[in-house]
Structure formats: structure tokens, C-alpha cells
């Protein structure tokens, strides 16, 4: 860990955040399906960037490449100047999936502390600057639920626990793959604001995959619209809506204009 931090320190300023250069992913070897083609994207440290696009545009694939869950066929990814694999081994990648994926035999406290203890257990040094399990339970709004088991919690609360579990690692980046897609719309909406509140507090670099254009606009500094077959970046939208954003933000002209523009562009890509 100390080594990694030293590396990160020597890495130049421009290397902080996520650097994706010329990333290509081909499924099934030569002549297979090209899921991603020559993706170039820089995400600044502390920036919130969403990936949107029709199904099959490769947004989840791109997230998996950054998460080191899938090797790119070509190109390179760096996070704070390091390879994703190094960060994964150091336990500094925070992942939140569509499913909460909590261990049903552990209570919420145990689930939130699980990854931290796994990292400590295989030789990684757990960062001491990160928040404690108790603090995180409060941060994500699960105060009083630490001793409960996952099945006793609603889907939204389970997803809060999953977010806390990722934050417990004090991650270099937070990678979220449609984290609210399995929730009902009202819960989903509330979770978006909760996430923003937590993000304001920790200022993690976030890469966020979603199907919902309004969710992407509400949360992000930039929205990356991808186009399918082969997956590539179509256009990047700067979301210059002032922060902190509230439910009222949705009523502003700027917000609806951006969503509309994204919508129009998305349909253009599809036809």
C-alpha cells in the first residue's frame, strides 16, 4: 500500500482520476463481436461521470474493464496513474452492482466491514483514513440497522449497505453499474439524492452506468453518451447545473433542456 501511494504521488497531476486510452474489447477472439472500439476518456479526480446509451453500447463492459473484472483486448486504463489490477489487489476499487450482493449470513455491520477485512486478510494494508463501519452506517442512513440481516431490509436499504461496503475501502474510484435499476421509482429517486449527499462528503471519483437519462443528468458533472455496434463514445455532455442539486433542480429549464437534448441524441444514434 505504502508503495502504491508513493507511486501515486510520483505520478504526475494529469494522471490522477481515470484515464482510458484506446480501449478496445472484442468478445470471442478474432472475428468476434467488437463490444468497445477505441474508447478514450479522462475522468478527473473527484469527478462524477455517467455512462449512458442503448443496450449493447458497451457501457457495462467499459465499467468492467476499469474494475479489472475483464481485460481489454487493446488499449490501456489507469486509475490515479496505476493499473486497475494493482488497485484491485490493494482493495482500492469500490464497486456497487445492480444487486446489493450482501452476504445473507452476515448482518449489515458484518457486510460493510467484510471487504475491508478481506483486504487486510490477504496482505493489503487497509487505509486508516477511511471512515469506520459505524460512521458509514450513519452516513448512508442505516443508523440502528447495523445488527439487522439483509433479508430484513428493503431493496433500497440493501443498496445503501452495498454503497457503505464500497466506501469502507476508502476507494480510489467508485464504480457503479446501474446500482438503482432494481429499485422502484420512488426509492430510486431518493437513493440518487442520498448518493449525491454522500458524494459531496467524500468527493470520490465516480463512474456511473445507468439507463436513466434524467438520473445521469441529475447526478453527473459529465454524461458520456455511447453508441452501439461497435460500442464507442458518441458525445460527451457537460452538465453545468449548479450544485448542490435538489429535487427542485428537476424543475429548472436547464435540467429539462439537457435531458431533452440527450434524449434526442440517443434516438438519433439508435436510428
Amino acid at each position: 500500500m505504502a508503495l502504491i501511494e508513493a507511486d501515486a504521488a510520483t505520478a504526475s497531476e494529469t494522471n490522477s482520476g481515470i484515464g482510458i486510452s484506446n480501449v478496445t474489447v472484442v468478445y470471442g477472439g478474432d472475428g468476434g463481436v467488437t463490444a468497445l472500439k477505441n474508447i478514450n476518456l479522462q475522468v478527473k479526480e473527484g469527478e462524477f461521470v455517467s455512462l449512458v446509451g442503448a443496450s449493447g453500447c458497451g457501457k457495462s463492459t467499459l465499467l468492467k474493464v476499469v474494475a479489472d473484472l475483464m481485460p481489454p483486448t487493446g488499449g490501456q486504463v489507469t486509475v490515479n496513474g496505476l493499473a486497475p489490477s494493482a488497485l484491485r489487489k490493494a482493495g482500492r476499487l469500490g464497486l456497487v452492482f445492480q444487486q446489493a450482493n450482501l452476504m445473507p449470513w452476515l448482518n449489515i455491520r458484518g457486510n460493510i466491514g467484510l471487504l475491508k477485512s478481506l483486504v487486510a486478510g490477504h496482505g493489503g494494508t487497509v487505509s486508516k483514513t477511511g471512515a469506520s463501519v459505524d460512521q458509514l452506517i450513519d452516513v448512508v442512513g442505516l443508523t440502528g440497522f447495523g445488527e439487522k440481516f439483509p433479508h430484513q431490509l428493503s431493496g433500497g436499504m440493501q443498496q445503501r449497505a452495498a454503497l457503505a461496503r464500497a466506501l469502507a475501502l476508502d476507494p480510489a474510484v467508485l464504480l457503479m453499474d446501474e446500482p438503482f435499476a432494481a429499485l422502484d421509482e420512488i426509492t430510486r429517486d431518493r437513493m440518487a439524492f442520498e448518493l449525491m449527499r454522500v458524494w459531496q462528503q467524500y468527493r470520490k471519483t465516480v463512474l456511473f452506468v445507468t439507463h436513466s437519462l434524467s438520473e445521469a443528468v441529475m447526478l453527473s458533472d459529465r454524461v458520456v453518451l455511447m453508441s452501439p455496434r461497435p460500442g464507442r463514445i458518441h458525445r460527451i455532455f457537460d452538465i453545468d447545473l449548479p450544485r448542490p442539486r435538489t429535487p427542485e433542480t428537476r424543475l429548472t429549464e436547464g435540467f429539462s433542456k439537457l435531458v431533452l437534448e440527450l434524449n434526442r441524441e440517443l434516438y438519433e444514434v439508435m436510428t
Binding site: 474494475a67 452492482f97 471487504l115 478481506l118 486478510g121 490477504h122
Partner: peptide
Amino acid sequence: GLRDVFTSVAATERQ
């Protein structure tokens, strides 16, 4: 999904 959680921090076979 639970496996992916373990993979995300490079958990060992033993873990």
C-alpha cells in the same frame, strides 16, 4: 454476484 464482490478486492482462494 456474491463472487464478484469477493473478486473486486482480489480475495484469495482460501478466503
